Simulated assay, not measured.
Amino acid sequence: MAETITYLESLQRGLKQVLREDPSTFIMGEDIGAYGGAFKLTDGFLDEFGEDRIIDSPIVETGLVGAAIGAGMAGFKPIVEMQFIDFISCTFNQLTNFAATCHFRWGQNVPIVVRGPSGGGVHAGPFHSQMVESFFLNTPGLKIVVPATVSDVHGMLLGAVADPNPVLFLEQKGLYRTLKEEVQGTPEPIAPGRARIHRPGDRISIITWGAMLHRCTAAAETAQREDGISCEVLDLRSLCPLDLEAIRETVAKTGKVLVIHEDNLTGGAGSEIAARIVEDCFEDLDAPVRRIAALDVPIPYAGTLEDASLPDEKRILEEIRQLSAW
């Protein structure tokens, strides 16, 4: 039976599914038990699964990830919640120097998922609004996924938990309760590395991920309606590994590319994607690859300034029109 649920409710269902189906899974995090989490994502989990599997922790992100690594090596599948993904920076050494390298160094898998609310859109300021994918993108051994839709956040969580490698699962908190979708049944697991066409088109390829997917889609619909410009929107879903085949296919189809993301422009994942396109698809291009991203500033507290710092539909539409005229 079909029903309409939010992004947050879909994520809740995914977490409950893995906890019910696999007794080796558990969740660790700050205030996730009795309080139910900062966004009430795990509200009621403690009553259903008990304190051995819904583990409240002190404010010690490094300890959380360190304990999860050990548990993963011992045969468990820990899911670590960062109360806000910004504080994953505290765990950088544990993730990049240790967890990511274990399999390469001595064949030891570290099946952990580190997940948490990411990105802006809620006017929470510089310590609670970052996109952190670029911090980890050049670390071999880590996988990075960013679900953008209600159905994907459930299926991609299943895929992340099933993966034998460390997976960073970046949820868009701005979508938690604002994004709704009709779903039916239980989705299949979506493994890291699988992009999908969100909107077909043949004039311009828009490559994006996370919450920007919806702004890109809105701009593409306006461009089609007002200017007759047909834009294909590719939702990468996974940044590491990249679905290079999907990227090559859309570039070959349109010859013009916009790469759009919420992270800062300089050093963002868009730089790597643009470089891969130029290296692998140069003869397919009819125009330079263009990038749209957040300004190179910390995310401001003031709502008007935050809105001005992030790509919006108007800016994306202007770039679509300019690229179409190239």
Rank of each mutant, 00 (worst) to 15 (best):
M73L: 14
P241Y: 10
A99G: 09
S24L: 07
R196L: 03
G201V: 02
K314C: 00
G125I: 01
A302S: 13
T178M: 13
A67H: 03
F92G: 02
S205D: 03
G155H: 05
G141L: 00
T91F: 02
I277R: 03
E319D: 12
E226H: 04
A68D: 03
P187L: 06
V161I: 12
P147N: 05
V60N: 15
W326S: 13
A148G: 14
V289I: 13
L234T: 02
K77M: 07
L323R: 00
E318W: 06
A68S: 08
F135Y: 14
K180D: 05
L234E: 06
R203V: 08
P200I: 10
D86N: 15
S309C: 10
L19G: 07
E21L: 10
A269M: 15
C216E: 04
G116P: 00
P298V: 10
T178L: 11
V150I: 06
I247S: 02
I292Q: 05
S238G: 12
I190H: 05
E249R: 14
Y7I: 08
R315L: 11
Y301P: 08
A275G: 14
L234H: 05
L239P: 02
A124I: 05
R321M: 04
G50E: 03
E81Y: 08
L168N: 07
T25V: 13
A218Q: 13
K253I: 07
I292K: 05
C281T: 07
N165Y: 11
F98S: 15
G63N: 08
E48V: 10
L179K: 13
C231N: 01
S151G: 13
G228D: 01
C281N: 09
G201H: 01
M82T: 09
I292V: 15
G125E: 02
W326G: 11
I320E: 00
F87H: 09
I69T: 06
M73V: 05
F92V: 09
A294H: 09
G267T: 12
L170Y: 05
G141N: 01
D52M: 12
T266L: 15
P164M: 09
S10A: 15
T250P: 07
N97C: 14
D280R: 15
H198N: 13
G255W: 03
I69N: 03
F135N: 04
L234F: 04
T139A: 09
T25C: 15
T208Q: 10
A220M: 08
F39R: 02
E313N: 04
E319S: 12
T250Q: 04
P164T: 09
D235Y: 08
